[in-house]
Amino acid sequence: MNVYEDKYLRDKISRIIARQKEGKVVIAAYKDGSGLPAREDLGQALARAAYPHDYAVGSAGFLNFDSELGAYLYTAKPGVKQPEVITRYQPLSLAEAELIVQERQVCIRAGDTAVTFSGVQTWKGMYEILREINEELARVNAGIVVWKIIPKEGNYTEPADRLFSGAVPRLRNGQALGHVTGYAFDDDHALAYIGLVSYKTSLESLRITLMTGKPLQMVQDGVGDHTLIPNEKYEQAWQAMPEYTSHHAAFLSRLATPGKWEPEDLIAYLLVFRDALDPNADLIRLFIERLKEALEIPILDSWSAVLWKQASNRKYIQKMNVGGDCILGAKIDLQADWQELLSNLLAEKAIALTA
């Protein structure tokens, strides 16, 4: 692959940046890959305005066409509530991108800001890759426009702290999209856990879909699609990410939440996350703790390894599909005949009531 440059885009953005440095708010006439919000994004009715303005933007301000830029300059009315794209308006900066071909990854640095995209479709033309990068940067309001892509090949070591080795999965409900930070679902596609990053409005839309029990679609380039079926109830936690104008939200099924289990539950989920020092030991510990709560017969900690192995052989325990910050998961069948299993193990002296 050769270095790809779009000098026309570079020169155009340079002119826009010069205007922005003069304190101007530049609005694109249409979606043109400039990283600017377009007239249609203002969310208010446009009407022809009296001189010296070209358009009135509702009661919020005015647009004047700048022929040198091929775009509009926005003037806000003092003391009037402004459209969201104006309150979130970001001055632009130009950047170059490194395309790590083997890893299908793009790394962008602009000043103190670093952005990484995974799952880049490297088989596409460089023009198309550049367009998609800039569309995504504009979508997240990064204030960055890439004009040059530099392919890199050779020995590249993937960072150990990446959540996904390939493309980052995306969760959709037909109206909104969120990028997945972690997930866990069973073989029936019942969703035990999902972590998401997106705009708050998108997360709220996905939350409503989840809470109403409607299916969601998880898409991961190069891996495939999964239809995920919500459980009855989820615990949730939200964290603002103001530097990215986004939020991080986590939704954990009640069936996977210690302290929220109920006596009539038929299954339980056990999940281990990436900060665990000994993930396998933690999973077995959670297994024993859950059995102690669910069964009316005594369970000794010393039985954990044997009981885990035998229950797995009988399919009382099933591994879950996990990814991202969730590194291990198991589904426990609480309807299984655990008493028979324990009786057999005691009779075989595989476990004992005394140490």
Rank of each mutant, 00 (worst) to 15 (best):
126 M>D: 15
322 V>K: 01
78 P>F: 13
225 D>G: 02
127 Y>A: 15
17 I>W: 02
134 N>K: 02
220 Q>V: 04
91 P>M: 08
298 P>K: 12
94 L>R: 05
320 M>D: 01
316 Y>E: 06
8 Y>E: 10
198 S>Q: 04
212 T>A: 10
17 I>L: 01
335 Q>V: 06
66 D>S: 04
325 D>H: 08
43 G>K: 08
312 S>Q: 15
309 K>E: 14
124 K>H: 15
323 G>N: 07
340 E>D: 14
293 E>L: 14
139 R>C: 02
172 R>I: 12
276 A>Y: 00
248 H>M: 12
160 A>K: 00
267 I>E: 15
153 E>T: 10
206 L>K: 07
56 A>M: 09
185 F>R: 06
121 Q>W: 15
44 Q>D: 12
26 V>N: 06
131 R>K: 15
78 P>W: 09
150 I>Q: 10
121 Q>A: 11
24 K>D: 13
347 A>M: 12
83 P>R: 00
220 Q>H: 05
267 I>A: 07
6 D>S: 01
199 Y>W: 03
127 Y>Q: 15
107 C>T: 15
228 L>K: 07
83 P>C: 00
137 L>R: 01
292 K>E: 13
18 A>S: 12
52 P>G: 07
318 Q>K: 12
8 Y>K: 15
215 P>R: 06
33 G>Y: 01
184 A>G: 09
291 L>K: 06
272 V>D: 07
199 Y>P: 03
164 F>T: 07
306 V>R: 15
331 K>W: 05
196 L>S: 08
12 K>I: 03
311 A>T: 01
27 I>Y: 01
21 K>M: 10
131 R>N: 12
44 Q>L: 14
201 T>Y: 11
72 Y>S: 03
57 V>H: 00
237 A>P: 01
190 A>V: 12
7 K>F: 14
86 I>N: 04
42 L>N: 08
339 Q>M: 09
185 F>E: 00
300 L>E: 08
167 A>D: 05
153 E>Q: 13
259 G>R: 00
181 T>Q: 06
217 Q>D: 00
283 L>D: 05
183 Y>W: 10
216 L>D: 02
115 V>Y: 11
188 D>S: 13
118 S>V: 13
278 D>T: 14
346 L>S: 07
206 L>R: 04
36 L>D: 03
13 I>L: 08
128 E>Y: 10
260 K>F: 14
210 L>S: 02
322 V>R: 07
156 Y>L: 10
100 I>T: 05
6 D>L: 01
142 A>L: 09
65 F>A: 05
16 I>H: 00
285 R>Y: 14
202 S>D: 13
267 I>P: 01
33 G>Q: 03
181 T>H: 03
